[in-house]
């Protein structure tokens, strides 16, 4: 957990010197809704519900995902 707590600081420091290698004008495909890991949040949440009630495993389903920082 200590390592996790330090991660935001490390990432922030690294972020200063790195240039984005995918330019904003190259993100058309990434911004397509079909690139999201879950397009329908209400249906996806229900599907996770079905599995969790019937399986021993739980967590790290990923509550969102996909897409990019553009729109």
């Amino acid at each position: 957990m200590k390592l996790l707590a330090l991660l935001p600081l490390v990432v922030s420091l690294c972020a200063c010197g790195i240039q984005p290698w995918v330019k904003p004008y190259e993100r058309q495909n990434l911004s397509d809704p079909i690139m999201r890991f879950e397009r329908d949040p209400i249906a996806g949440g229900y599907t996770n519900h079905v599995y969790q009630a019937r399986e021993g495993a739980r967590g790290a389903e990923g509550s969102g995902g996909g897409g990019c920082g553009c729109n």
Binding site: R36, F37, E38, P41, G44, G45, N48, H49, Q52, A53, R58, G59, E61, G62, S63, G64, G65, G66, G67, C68, G69, C70, N71
Partner: peptide, 22 residues
Amino acid sequence: TRATLLLVCGSALAVGASLSRA
């Protein structure tokens, strides 16, 4: 296990699209 579902479903409400579209 139902209560665990709530944790995930509930947090998905708040977290959901934040991951997906920065």
